[in-house]
Structures are given as structure tokens and as C-alpha cells.
Write a protein that binds this DNA or RNA. Structure first.
Length: 678
DNA sequence: GATCCTCGAGTTCG
DNA sequence: CTCGAGGATC
């Protein structure tokens, strides 16, 4: 390898990183309108540090590593902090934390036996609060760490900021005290605020951090006052009295003065601290505010001070960053899927990007109104988030990053699969392809028909379904029962074993109970729950086909719309033909005597929601267990939910349950409840 | 008529 | 998990 050109390209990368970082710094600190996520910024900074560590001769005073922030905006008065408000070095995994430990151990061997305080790194806006004789006299933003902005008037409106300490009036206040904290917004308050802003037709915020920063930097304090902001205080910047000499005791001291402090844990050694971090990382979705990582601090403040500072990062603490759940990327294209009901669903094609450990290339955009409402354009830099742990979605465009090249999206006039003009029911959000013979719809229909909750034909996945449709072997779902062995063998990738397995699966599905078959038909608005209600009221499909709208509406949960959809479905000649074919194929279940005895009624009258993975039950088993004991299972937590059953890695439902005060059980608790024990 | 609850439909990656 | 919409309830 040519080392000369390698050095050259490394130097180019260095320049590029500096340029980028300077620009993003300016966007973040001066314009208050960042165009990349903090995580990406941290990553770039880490890369730059890495290069500079290898080539210390390249470090220049204007390198972004040599300072911590940009120039403060001019509209607020500038404030010089009594001491530099430092930032933190980052680690991105447990080994990064251990490497930090090794570094500081070499500096001072007392590190060997120190303990640590672990606190969440809250995603908000850092503030510095000044108290004179117990009275709040000034508050400032962090700014570049040396000079911040005076936002006293705004901070006074934040209820969590004590205007007088000690807040309980007991004891003497220090003559002079400066503390550091983080102003943030809880996820719940953020969502409520965004909803309000949206309803008022105003611009919404992308995330809680953005909102907290934007709210605090309002020139009009009455706007700040209307924003539900919160505060955590976690460090003492300056004081004219003796303060405790460990971080752990300082937190207690701050609490005693009346400051809200973050949840924290005292860990006897580093491995314990790392374990604690990992536990918190897993519980990340349960905390009511957004955190982008966890801070590990050497508990002994004297040792912290002695360890000193590298650049602008104190050695005595490190931020263990979570993998990003929210990142920005380029929206390359918007394409459209056709669902089995003919609904057109737009999705975003993204510049591949890593979110929470997986590479995301696509994200749903829900519907065309969503694109329009958020003003998402092709070519935009967008903020993408993985909801809970799984499905990525586009939160919105970063308008500040626009170049003018972005294209406003126009929904298609015709179905992307069959070119039939699209239709929309006025007042409704969705657009439909109304072609009953649309091949895309047929594929989706078959997919639904063979799916687990319907006919459960195992081994018949989307790929094979697509093949069957493409070869013209299947024109409706009933054709599956008329497939010949030779047909399957003629398909690409089919050998005898595979063909026989699939034929056997299809054969097995002939005996599915009535409710499954009703689900499989794919009547609009009729899913598993409604299908099973219907199966309880009608002995077979002929009886259901003969039902009038009035009869159907007498069933709980079925109103005029769904009743009409059912009647319409059975009147459609195509569907009548389909039913004949099913009947001839022997797929004609009769309602079973639904007198499987409930094991008990100990859970009667109670509604349950399950979240996360349970130790021994699968989701389906848990559901069956609850139902067998007379309980009801629904999907969403509401005030009517009696208990939330939580497993490993719970989703946002747990948060909601806690907000609503719904009691939470684990699997053992559920079993105990079912058995009537307390 | 408004609000809450429940259901259905579409969806990502490995 | 998210959203929209239908249905139930006050």
C-alpha cells in the first residue's frame, strides 16, 4: 500500500470532519436548528479525536476538538460562567468504558478502588443556575462552556427551578451557590404539546430535546411559561460553603436544598457500573424522559478533580452512549404499496442507516396526508426513529438542511401495480385501487388467506404466492385447493419434497374452524375478533351470506358500516363464485359447539394487555390462558384495562400503564391471580 | 356531539 | 408499533 497517499486521504478526512463539525456546531448552538442527530455528531467527533490522537502534529487551535460549542446567539445577554462548564468524553460500548478506566488508572492508582455514581444522560438543555443567599438570581445556558446566554426570565417560569433554597425554608442557605442541571421535557408532555401545536396548525417539534431547547430560548418568557418543562440538577459548579466530597452525597445535598435530582445509583466498582448501565439501556423505554446515554462518574470528587481535564473533557467521568434510536438520513424516493384491500400505502426509500443495531432502508409513511402534513419531500434529510424496538418511521423533515433541490411529492393518479385510476372516499384519508382483479391485491389477499391467524397454511410464503400468481396458476384464494402436484413441480425452485409439503399444508387447512375461514375471506373491517363474533352467531357461511344488515348490527361490535361491508361482500358475484369453489373443495366448516369449558372464572370481568416476552407463555398461550379463566385480552392500554402483564423488553405500553395507574403483573402474578391467590 | 375504546390494516429487519 | 376509523358510551 502506498502510505503517502494513505496519509493524504486521512488528512482529507480530518479536514472534512472539521468542516462538518464546525458547521453542525453552528447549527446546534447558534441557530438552535441542528440538521444531524447528536449521535452522529458524537460519532464524527470521536472519529476526529481518533485521527488527532494518531497525529497530534495535526491538531490546530481551531479544531472542533479544542472547544466545546459555538458562538452564542446575540439576542440574549452573554454570561460568563464561574468555571468552564465541561462536556464529557463518550464511550459507545462496554469496552470503551473499560478503556477509559485503563486510561485514568494510569493517571492515578486510587482509581483502582474507587466507586462510581451512575446517572442517566438526559437529552435536554444544560443550564447553570446562580443562587445568592438562597435566592435564584440568574440562570444561563451552557453556550460554548465558557460564555452562555442569560435566560433568567425564562428559567423563572420553569416550576421545577426553586426560586429560593432551601425550598422548605429550614436551615441557612449558602451565601453563594452555582449549580448545573438539565432542563428537559418528559415524553408524555412532549407528545401532548405537539398534539396541541398540530391542532393549532403550528409547526411541531421533532423530539423532546429540540422542544426543551426551543422553549427555553424564546424571547418572550410567557411562551416558555406555557411549556411543560422539567429540571434535574446534578452538579455543583461553585459554592462559598463546604459541600460534600462525593458525588453521591452531593446529590443528596442538592435534594435537601430543594433541587430535583436525576435517578442515580451508587456502584462499588466499574463492572457493577457497566452492568447497571446495561440494565438501564434495556429499560430505556420505561423512563418517562429521553436519555441518550448514561454518565458514569468517579464518586470521589477530590479524585475527580485530581484526574484533571483532557481538552474540554474531565477525565473523572464518561458518557456511555446508547445506540441511536433516532438518526437522520436522506429520503431517496417515495414509493407506493398496494394492500389487500386496495389501500395505497406510501413508503420511504432511505439512504441505508443504522438505527439501534440494524440497517434501515425503508420506512412506512402511513398515508398521503401524513406526507403532506409533515411536508416531507423527496431528497429531504429526515429524522427517522424506530418505534419501540421495531418499526422505523419518518418523524419529519429537517427543513434547515434543505438545498432547494427537494421535490414536493405528488401521489400517483393510478395504481402502481395495475394502472387503474385511484379512488378516494371524500373525507377519508386513504386512497384505493378499486380494480378487483389487481394482481398486487391478489398477492396480498393470498398472503392474508394463508397467514397464521387465518387458514394457517405453513410453508406457503409470499415468494411462492407471487410465483403462483405470476404463472397464472391461481386467480383467487380458492384456486389453492385445486393446485396439482405437476403445477408446483413446474415452478422454479421446486423439488418433490417441497411440493408435497405444501400440498399437505393446503390439505390440512381444509379443516379450519368457521371463524378462521371468515377471517381468511378478508372482508373489509372483519378481522379475527369480528370473525369469531360472527362464527358464534351463524352456523355456516350460507347462513352468514343470508344475513341482513339489521341482523348483523344486532351483534355487539358491528355497526352499520361493517354490516354493510359484509352484506356487500356476499352479494358480489365474484365472491359467490369463490364460495362455491371453496364448498366444492370441501372447505366448508360448520360452527363448532363452543362449549369448551372455561377452566375458571377467576379473571371474569377483567381486561388484560400483554407486553414484552413472557418467560413460559407465548403471546397466544397467554391470551388463551386469560380467556380460559374468563378474562378479556385487548391490544391497547386504556383506563379500562385491569392489569398489564409485562414480560422481558416491554414496549411503550408499560409507560402508558404507569401513566394511567394501571397495575402491572408479571407472568407469575398472572398465574397467581388466575388461581385466586393473592 | 364529543370522547374513549377497540379493531383492523400495513409494516421492518434478520 | 402506528395510524385511521368504526362503534360504544356518556
Amino acid at each position: 500500500m502506498d502510505t503517502k497517499s494513505e496519509t493524504q486521504s486521512l488528512q482529507e478526512r480530518l479536514e472534512e470532519l472539521r468542516r462538518e463539525l464546525n458547521y453542525h456546531n453552528y447549527r446546534y448552538h447558534v441557530l438552535d436548528d441542528p440538521v444531524i442527530s447528536d449521535y452522529e455528531y458524537d460519532r464524527m467527533m470521536a472519529e476526529l479525536r481518533e485521527i488527532e490522537a494518531q497525529h497530534p502534529e495535526w491538531i490546530t487551535p481551531d479544531s472542533p476538538t479544542q472547544r466545546t460549542g459555538g458562538q452564542p446567539a446575540s439576542r440574549f445577554q452573554k454570561v460568563r460562567h464561574p468555571h468552564a462548564i465541561l462536556s464529557l468524553a463518550n464511550a459507545f460500548d462496554a469496552d470503551g468504558v473499560r478503556a477509559w478506566f485503563e486510561r485514568i488508572r494510569r493517571v492515578d492508582d486510587r482509581v483502582e478502588h474507587t466507586d462510581y455514581v451512575v446517572e442517566p444522560k438526559i437529552d435536554g438543555l444544560t443550564v447553570v443556575l446562580h443562587y445568592q443567599n438562597g435566592v435564584f438570581v440568574q440562570g444561563a445556558t451552557r453556550g460554548d462552556g465558557v460564555i452562555g446566554e442569560d435566560i433568567t426570565a425564562n428559567l423563572r417560569t420553569v416550576k421545577a427551578v426553586p426560586l429560593r433554597i432551601p425550598a422548605d425554608g429550614k436551615g441557612t442557605p449558602p451565601g453563594y451557590l452555582v449549580v448545573r442541571g438539565e432542563v428537559y421535557m418528559t415524553i408524555e408532555n412532549f407528545e401532548a404539546l405537539n398534539k396541541r401545536l398540530m391542532e393549532a396548525g403550528e409547526k411541531t417539534y421533532l423530539n423532546p430535546r429540540n422542544t426543551a431547547a426551543g422553549s427555553l430560548r424564546q424571547l418572550d418568557p410567557t411562551i416558555t411559561a406555557s411549556r411543560p418543562l422539567d429540571l434535574f440538577v446534578y452538579s455543583i459548579v461553585a459554592a462559598d460553603v463546604e459541600v460534600p466530597d462525593t458525588q453521591w452525597e452531593r446529590l443528596a445535598y442538592l435534594r435537601k436544598l430543594g433541587f430535583p435530582t436525576p435517578p442515580a445509583e451508587l456502584c462499588p466498582d466499574l463492572e457493577k457500573a457497566i452492568t447497571t448501565c446495561n440494565i438501564w439501556a434495556e429499560k430505556r423505554n420505561e423512563i418517562p424522559f429521553e436519555a441518550d446515554g448514561i454518565v458514569i462518574k468517579v464518586n470521589d470528587m477530590r479524585l475527580q478533580a485530581d484526574l484533571g481535564v483532557v481538552g474540554k473533557d474531565p477525565r473523572g467521568a464518561i458518557a456511555y452512549k446508547f445506540p441511536a434510536q433516532e438518526v437522520t438520513t436522506q429520503l431517496l424516493d417515495i414509493r407506493v404499496n398496494v394492500g389487500r384491500t386496495g389501500v395505497l400505502t406510501p413508503y420511504a426509500v432511505l439512504e441505508p442507516v443504522e438505527i439501534g443495531g440494524v440497517i434501515v432502508k425503508q420506512a412506512t409513511l402511513h398515508n398521503f396526508d401524513y406526507i403532506k402534513g409533515k411536508d416531507i419531500r423527496v431528497g429531504d434529510r429526515v429524522m427517522v426513529k424506530r418505534a419501540g424496538d421495531v418499526i422505523p418511521y419518518v418523524i419529519g423533515p429537517i427543513e434547515g438542511a434543505r438545498t432547494g433541490e427537494e421535490q414536493v411529492y405528488t401521489p400517483p393518479q393510478v395504481c402502481p401495480a395495475c394502472a387503474t385510476p385511484v379512488q378516494n372516499i371524500p373525507g377519508e384519508v386513504y386512497w384505493y385501487c378499486v380494480n378487483a382483479a389487481c394482481p398486487a391485491q391478489l398477492v396480498r389477499n393470498l398472503e392474508h388467506f394463508v397467514s397464521r391467524g387465518a387458514m394457517d397454511i405453513v410453508g406457503l410464503g409470499i415468494r411462492i404466492v407471487e410465483q403462483l400468481v405470476a404463472e397464472g396458476m391461481v386467480h383467487d384464494v380458492a384456486d389453492l385447493y385445486y393446485l396439482k402436484r405437476e403445477d408446483l413441480l413446474s415452478l422454479e425452485g421446486f423439488a418433490e419434497k417441497k411440493a408435497d409439503n405444501i400440498l399437505q399444508s393446503i390439505e390440512n387447512s381444509r379443516s379450519r374452524p368457521l371463524e378462521r375461514v371468515i377471517t381468511a375471506l378478508g372482508i373489509m373491517g372483519v378481522g379475527e375478533v369480528t370473525a369469531s363474533d360472527l362464527a358464534r352467531h351463524f352456523p355456516d357461511l350460507d347462513a352468514l351470506a343470508a344475513a341482513t344488515s339489521e341482523q348483523l348490527q344486532s351483534i355487539d361490535g358491528i355497526g352499520p358500516n361493517i354490516a354493510e361491508a359484509i352484506v356487500d361482500w356476499f352479494q358480489n358475484p365474484r365472491n359467490r363464485q369463490l364460495l362455491e369453489k371453496l364448498k366444492a373443495a370441501g372447505v366448508w366448516p360448520r360452527a363448532q359447539n363452543n362449549d369448551r369449558k372455561p377452566v375458571g372464572d377467576s379473571l371474569a370481568g377483567m381486561t388484560f394487555v400483554v407486553t414484552g416476552t413472557l418467560p413460559t407463555f407465548s403471546r397466544e398461550e397467554a391470551k388463551a390462558f386469560i380467556q380460559a379463566h374468563g378474562g378479556k385480552v385487548t391490544d391497547s392500554v386504556s383506563k379500562k384495562t385491569s392489569y398489564l402483564v409485562r414480560g422481558e423488553n416491554p414496549g411503550s405500553k408499560l409507560q402508558k400503564a404507569q401513566d394511567l395507574g394501571v397495575p402491572v403483573l408479571d407472568e407469575a402474578g398472572l398465574r397467581a391471580l388466575a388461581e385466586g391467590k393473592r
